[in-house]
């Protein structure tokens, strides 16, 4: 469904992505792991053209494009097939939870207002916020805000959901509620690309685990293979370190 090849991206002299390939099929849950600064966020942002890659090609269903110099129309098309959940939620502060979710439907996709409202409510119900429609982001806890972020993303029926460390800005006691929602989506067959440091969660949901370091993919495979029998020493080292450091949440 989505295939991206040879993504390269530099910030000045800093070559952050040095030729990354990634393939996602319908229903896949791709979990990307890697140490801080390895280029995970940059990779996700390039998929959605929030960052312009220097090189690389993308095949996304019927779309075929270079990442560098893609036309506005192609960018708009790709963005309508994907949705992004941000580490810092990035909710629209001047809109209620319901309006946050409706915005992408009414404004970007021209869905009639009444229909958009129904769909937005459904999305909020799904993330457990049926009683928070009219709350502004400033009136919600971090976990609730992130669930609004997820509702905003799923409401537009994207082909691929992209998550960039959706729980790392949350207090530990709020992480569980967000991971539970993501698990539910995974079980319903959503296609997701997830960057996370929640190792237990990763093991449970991933259909494919990708380990990145220094702007390249060091190794990828099934969750079982990567976690129990990594081929590369760098992967093993990373896993030893994080499994020691991180608390289990689920």
């Amino acid at each position: 469904m989505l295939k991206v090849e040879n993504i390269k991206k530099s910030f000045g002299d800093n070559q952050v992505l040095q030729g990354v390939d990634i393939e996602v099929n319908k229903g896949d849950i791709v979990v990307i792991l890697g140490p801080s600064g390895s280029g995970k966020t940059t990779l996700l942002r390039c998929l959605n053209f929030l960052e312009k890659a220097d090189q690389g090609t993308m095949t996304f269903d019927d779309i075929n494009t270079r990442l560098h110099g893609a036309s506005k129309q192609v960018i708009a098309k790709v963005r309508k097939k994907t949705a992004f959940v941000f580490q810092n939620y990035n909710l629209f502060q001047n809109k209620t939870a319901l309006q946050n979710v409706m915005e992408g439907l009414v404004i970007a996709r021209k869905v009639p207002k009444a229909e958009a409202k129904e769909r937005a409510k459904k999305a909020l119900d799904k993330v457990g916020l049926a009683d928070r429609y009219d709350y502004y982001p400033s009136q919600l806890s971090g976990g609730q805000q992130q669930r609004v972020g997820i509702a905003r993303a799923i409401a537009v029926n994207p082909d691929v959901l992209i998550f960039d460390e959706p729980t790392s800005a949350l207090d530990p006691e709020l992480i569980g509620e967000v991971l539970a929602v993501m698990k539910k989506l995974a079980n319903e067959g959503a296609t997701m690309i997830i960057v996370t440091h929640e190792m237990t969660f990763a093991q449970e949901v991933a259909s494919k685990v990708v380990f990145m370091d220094g702007g390249v993919i060091v190794e990828q495979g099934s969750a079982k293979q990567i976690f129990t029998a990594p081929k590369e020493e760098r992967t093993a080292q990373f896993l030893r370190r994080v499994l020691k450091d991180y608390d289990y949440v689920i």
Partner: peptide, 20 residues
């Protein structure tokens, strides 16, 4: 971040400026 969020759900820059 709010601009990026708007772009990521398919709004264009103009819409994001005016509405958000």
């Amino acid at each position: 971040g709010q601009m990026e969020a708007a772009l990521s759900i398919g709004m264009n820059r103009f819409q994001a400026y005016v509405r958000i």
